[in-house]
């Protein structure tokens, strides 16, 4: 049964869930931002896994019979850009929060 359990889809979902868990449990702001990253990377892997066909090639020019679905990959290019901007904005805000509160612990960032 080893053939289909370890693939992009399952690993992607597991990474996504790890990311969500981390976002809920971590107290350090930098770690939370990293967990957001892990979450989105899991989703990217999930999407790319959706389009994968065993032994497929890239559908660029003719001369292929089995090819990989290119749509999820193009979608993921957009997601990478979105995720990059979210991460950079989150880190910029974390710097400002650290400047104002002198701590990165979200439990202490009150009032």
């Amino acid at each position: 049964m080893s053939l289909h359990l370890v693939n992009g889809i399952t690993i992607g979902i597991v990474l996504f869930l790890i990311g969500v868990f981390g976002c809920m449990t971590q107290r350090n702001l930098i770690k939370i931002v990293l967990c957001l990253d892990i979450m989105f990377l899991g989703l990217i892997l999930f999407f790319v896994g959706l389009g994968y066909t065993e032994g497929g090639t890239a559908p660029i020019l003719g001369g292929y019979s089995v090819y990989v679905d290119p749509l999820p990959q193009t979608l993921m290019l957009t997601t990478v850009v979105v995720e990059l901007s979210v991460t950079s904005l989150a880190l910029a805000l974390a710097i400002r929060v650290y400047e104002q509160y002198k701590t990165l612990d979200i439990e202490e960032v009150r009032t």
Binding site: F16, G19, V20, C23, L29, I32, L36, M39, F40, L43, F46, T79, V86, L89, A90, L93, A94, R96, V97, Q100, Y101, V109
Partner: peptide
């Protein structure tokens, strides 16, 4: 402002990830 924005950002990103899923 920074605190509120960061709080919103983290929750908003998690919810966007759910939507993408």
């Amino acid at each position: 402002n920074y605190r509120a924005s960061l709080k919103y950002l983290i929750l908003g990103s998690v919810s966007s990830a759910f939507f993408l899923f």
